[in-house]
Amino acid sequence: MRYLFLFIFAFQSNAQISDFGTVNFNEADKIALEYKNEKLNNLPELAYKLTANLDTDVERFRAIFMWVCGNIANDYRLFHKNMRKRQRYRDDSLKLKKWNDHFSKIVFKKLLKKNKTLCTGYAYLIKKLSVLANIDCEIVHGFARSSTTNVDRLDTPNHSWNAVKLNSKWYLCDPTWASGIPNLATSKFEFHYNNGFFLSNPKLFAVNHYPADKKWMLLLDEDKPSFKAFIEAPIIYGKAYTNLSVHKEPKKMHNIIQKNESIVFEFQLIKPVEAKDISLLIDNGKSSKKVHPELTSIKNKSLTVEYKFERMGFYDVHFLIGKDLISTYTFRVKG
Rank of each mutant, 00 (worst) to 15 (best):
L118H: 03
E190D: 13
E190C: 01
V264W: 08
E222M: 04
A178H: 06
K224M: 11
N195P: 00
S287F: 03
F267P: 00
K30M: 10
H159D: 14
E27S: 11
C173G: 15
I235L: 14
P234W: 12
N24A: 08
N14A: 01
Y193E: 07
K308M: 12
Y193T: 01
K85M: 14
H254P: 01
M253C: 01
F205E: 10
A10Q: 13
F5M: 14
K36A: 04
L154F: 10
Y210P: 05
N300I: 03
T156C: 08
D75L: 03
V305S: 06
R145P: 00
C119F: 10
G238F: 09
I231E: 07
G180V: 07
K276V: 13
Y329N: 13
K252C: 06
L280R: 02
D57S: 13
I326W: 04
V317R: 04
A32C: 04
H209S: 09
E310M: 11
D277S: 13
D92E: 15
G196L: 12
S179Q: 02
K251C: 01
N194P: 00
F205N: 07
V151I: 15
M1S: 13
N201D: 15
G313S: 05
K259W: 01
T120F: 06
K39A: 08
M66D: 15
S93V: 14
N115G: 01
F314I: 11
F108V: 00
G142E: 14
T186W: 09
P225K: 09
W216A: 03
P272I: 03
P202V: 06
N74P: 00
F5D: 15
V107G: 00
I256S: 12
L50H: 09
T56Q: 14
H102A: 01
V207P: 03
F230E: 07
I106K: 05
L269Y: 04
Y76M: 06
R86T: 12
T296S: 09
Y241F: 15
T120L: 11
E261A: 05
Y237W: 08
A212I: 14
K36G: 00
S179Y: 02
E232H: 05
D101S: 04
L111K: 02
E45A: 11
N100S: 11
I321P: 04
P293M: 10
I235N: 12
F79C: 04
Y171Q: 07
M253D: 09
W177D: 08
S104L: 09
K105S: 03
I257T: 14
I236C: 03
K239M: 07
L219F: 04
K301Y: 02
K289W: 01
C173H: 12
G21K: 13
F65A: 02
N195S: 12
D19F: 06
P293C: 08
I181P: 00
V273I: 15
M1P: 03
N158Q: 14
N150S: 11
I64M: 05
M66E: 15
K334W: 03
M1T: 13
H159Y: 13
T176W: 06
L303D: 08
P157G: 08
R77V: 10
T176C: 11
T56E: 15
P175F: 09
